[in-house]
Design a protein around this nucleic acid. Structure first.
Length: 374
RNA sequence: GCGAAUGUGGUGAAGAGGCUAACACAACCGGCUGUGAACCGGUCAUUCGUGGGUUCGAGCCCCAUCAUUCGCC
């Protein structure tokens, strides 16, 4: 695909961390980046303008959810996702592989695809790699993901192998089915915690010439060292010239570990979800705004933050809004958490440019080291 | 002053003689990682207005007392 490519500007001298620009049909974005999740074609509680103001490069939306409601044909009729949700920046659609994984009890996997039951009304439905690509083409995101099976952890080598092989065949089928030339298609490395399978998956996908590659199957309850091993095994065999996307990772330490290893893109529901539930990422660690100690704390959330929330509101007010279950509170806290992560990415890019990513990472981790991880 | 009803945690209350007083809300504290998620989990009455009695055993039965509410003077 022509108008989609990664321009690597600099690689940190002491690590594999890299920074640069990802060119997409809806604008250029800097990497490494964090992508806010807007499953249902909206980052919950925020307007597209707000998301943009936070400095977010890409918004994620979900094939599975939009297929169920309102349906890809409605979105196509609206003129595609960008018009439908009034966002002119780059959009990425996840394939639904992860959703099918979380539907575990209500699905059946075969060579052809996955039969599953809608979580909305119990309808029996079917996804094949071709069907998913067809939906994603109708949705019209800039980056689309191929349909994969996200295997659980732990899992036997035997099952992981069988699954990886099938996911590779699905990747190939998706690639063949993909017709639109204005959408980048990413392949997804799987293979559980097994080095040989990750290698096989990454090598095989690399030969298929996707526009980018992502690492899937992490952040599903495995210990941190296992997660990082899976990333290492996968990354080793992926082409350096293409964007690399670590799916579903959004905690501060994991993101930094990922960047150090050469990951360019991250997405996660964590910042927005925990914000709606009253947890905030601050330069002093995580805080739960509902704690009684903030009842009369009229200081800002985070003195080092430049977001709208921190510049204009106090902890006491945020706590009040949260306790009173006011929508505005969830919005203010989502703004903050997203800005916090996005700002961290901005600082990480700068650190990479200046060959001091390791120092940056260590100082960040030191700040959070004794606190609970996000 | 007389009559009636009711007294269980911060609140609304279950509980009609038998294990550690249900449940909900509030409060307090956690968690959430390609959003089935404005969700989930934990803690929260050594004690039933008070005092006495009956009973192997009482929040539940009896007596007294206090309080509250309603009705009548």
């Amino acid at each position: 695909m022509e108008n989609f490519y990664l321009e690597i500007k600099h690689i940190d001298k002491k690590t594999k961390a890299r920074c640069g620009i990802l060119h997409t049909p809806h604008g250029n974005v800097e990497i490494p980046m964090f992508m806010p999740v807007g499953t249902l074609a909206t980052v919950k509680t925020l307007s597209p303008e707000e998301v943009k103001q936070l400095g977010a490069g890409v918004i994620l939306a979900n094939t599975y959810h939009l297929f169920l409601r309102p349906g890809e044909d409605i979105v196509a009729k609206a003129g595609g996702l960008h018009k439908f949700m009034n966002y002119d920046g780059p959009i990425l659609t996840d394939s639904g592989g992860f959703q099918v994984f979380s539907l575990q009890d209500n699905r059946k996997i075969s060579e052809e695809g996955v039969t599953f039951k809608s979580h909305l009304n119990g309808d029996t439905l079917f996804f094949s790699p071709e069907k998913v690509i067809d939906i994603e083409e109708k949705l019209g995101a800039d980056i689309i993901m191929s349909f994969d099976e996200c295997i659980p952890y732990p899992v036997s080598h035997e099952y992981a192998k069988k699954s990886v092989e099938r996911t590779l065949r699905w990747a190939e089928r998706g690639l063949l089915a993909h017709k639109r030339s204005d959408q980048a298609l990413f392949g997804i490395v799987q293979g559980g915690e097994f080095e040989d399978l990750r290698e096989h998956s990454a090598r095989a996908l690399s030969q298929m010439n996707f526009d980018g590659y992502s690492i899937g199957g992490t952040s599903i309850g495995e210990p941190k060292d296992v997660c990082l091993r899976m990333v290492d095994y996968s990354l080793k065999y992926l082409p350096e010239s293409k964007p690399r996307y670590l799916m579903g990772v959004g905690s501060i330490d994991y993101i930094l570990e990922g960047i150090e290893r050469g990951i360019d893109m991250f997405d996660c529901v964590l910042p927005t979800r925990i914000a709606r539930h009253g947890a905030l990422m601050t330069s002093k660690g995580r805080i739960n705004i509902k704690d009684a100690k903030y009842k009369d704390d009229f200081s800002s959330l985070d003195g080092e933050c430049d977001c709208y929330t921190c510049k204009n509101y106090t902890k006491a007010y945020l706590r009040h809004l949260f306790v009173a279950d006011e929508a505005f509170g969830k919005r203010l806290m989502s703004i903050h958490n997203l800005r916090f992560l996005i700002k961290m990415m901005e600082e990480a890019r700068k650190a990479i440019q200046e060959d001091r990513f390791l120092e940056f990472k260590d100082s960040m981790i030191k700040k959070y080291g004794d606190k609970r991880g996000f």
